Amino acid sequence: MIPGIAHRVLPAFHGRLKDELTFPLSWERAGTDDFAAWRAAARARAGEALLEPPGPGTTPFDPVTYDAYSARSYTGRTVEFALSRHARARGSLLVPHGAGPFPAVLLLHDHGAEFAIGREKTVRPRSRPERLARANAWVERYYDGRFIGDDLAARGYAVLAVDTLGWGDRGPLAHEDQQALAANLFQLGTSLAGLTAHEDMRAAAFLASLPEVDERRVGALGFSMGAYRAWQLSALSDGVRAAAAVCWMTGLKDMMVPGNNTLRGQSAYFMLHPGLHRHLDIPDVASLAAPKPALFHSGALDALFPAAGVAAAYAKLRTVWESQGAGDRLTTTVWPDTGHTFTRAMQHAVHAWLDTWLRAG
């Protein structure tokens, strides 16, 4: 019998392919004590995998403000700026009352197959009231009923949330069209994941450029796909000084198992960099952020990320941070009785962590 497709979408020889992945560029296999040289080489390889060539020169942000409102302790406004050399995008910007510059957090929204809203998953849509009911339902389901951006602004952080391509004002994308979008970008010489990564770096740079923001205290925070983007951003960008990731960390081999949601394709394309895992495992890429402060939270009951994969990834991260004498800058936590959600208790822990590494400088 000729082997074909096993477990519906995995090739029957998937085990052999996994065995061939030895991640030769990982820190543990680097064969050097020169961490800076390793990080430069690994980051360069990761950059190649993004398939997003740099544009000619630096595109001005050219920001425009469309509306503004005042809350009890902060001001909110909608800003539009050049997110890339290709496109402009709108974001929700919250700035605390008082004298700045303030510490700042770039909020990276989740996926969840909910495309009608993007940044509204993290910042209350005061300028788009027609989206409020949908946003309220979303934060009740995944964020314990709280808009995490509004909470951070009330705590003294400048906050920016921007729609990813396919969401909110840049969509909505139909779930079944994700693979077509990704395929068409591949045809055009780039990738959906690479484009998303570059746009996140650009959004962080825009946030840091604002006069109200202390560019030395800019962090990133995300849940689910937003968590992946948060640690990826810290790994690829020196401008982000700390990142908190909730419910997205594992090893590749532990994730690529029958029944895992990643095998369905679709949303995976926002986090798929062609050929990267021939060189680096998922926690290897995240380790490029070391020795910067990093927080990873996971839920023990999260069906998307099996416990063994989370534990192995955390151990790998720990080895890297401790090798640089920065073990105190890495927080890895598994929350018992918690699934794929960003609970209020987890939010309080993130607040305290951000206060330590960003607000306190």
Rank of each mutant, 00 (worst) to 15 (best):
R88K: 12
R264H: 10
V350P: 03
A42P: 12
D328G: 15
F61W: 04
L288Y: 09
A158D: 07
T262G: 02
G171V: 02
L221K: 00
K292H: 11
V240C: 06
A326E: 12
R344G: 14
R128W: 05
A180G: 02
L132P: 09
T341Q: 07
A203D: 15
A46K: 00
L173Y: 00
M271K: 10
H7Q: 09
A242M: 07
V79Q: 02
W27I: 07
P11K: 13
L263C: 13
N261S: 13
L185F: 15
W38N: 10
P129H: 06
T338P: 05
R134G: 06
S224F: 04
A49I: 08
T338L: 14
F35Y: 13
T332N: 15
L288P: 05
R141Q: 15
A153P: 11
F147D: 07
L195W: 13
T319E: 04
W167F: 15
V139D: 07
G166L: 00
G100N: 06
R29M: 01
T331F: 04
G327N: 03
A42H: 09
G265P: 05
F61D: 07
R264I: 02
R45V: 11
G100L: 08
T32I: 11
V139H: 02
R318M: 03
V257I: 14
T338W: 06
G219F: 01
G259R: 12
V246D: 14
D34N: 11
A37W: 05
P54L: 13
R134E: 13
M201C: 08
R155M: 03
P291S: 11
A89C: 10
D328A: 14
S323K: 02
A116R: 12
P283L: 03
R359I: 00
A290T: 10
H297N: 04
L358D: 02
L330H: 01
A153E: 11
T331A: 13
G275I: 01
A137R: 12
T164M: 12
H297P: 01
T164Y: 05
E80N: 04
A311L: 08
R43S: 09
L358G: 04
F342V: 01
G275E: 11
Q232D: 05
F296Q: 07
H351Y: 15
P101A: 05
V334Y: 00
L192G: 07
P54H: 04
D355Y: 03
P129N: 11
T332M: 14
A308E: 15
P60L: 12
G47Q: 09
V105P: 02
S267V: 13
A135Q: 04
D177Q: 13
A180R: 15
T122A: 08
V334T: 15
M255Q: 14
D177N: 12
H198K: 10
G91F: 07
D151R: 13
F61C: 06
H348F: 03
G194Q: 06
V240A: 04
L188K: 08
L276I: 08
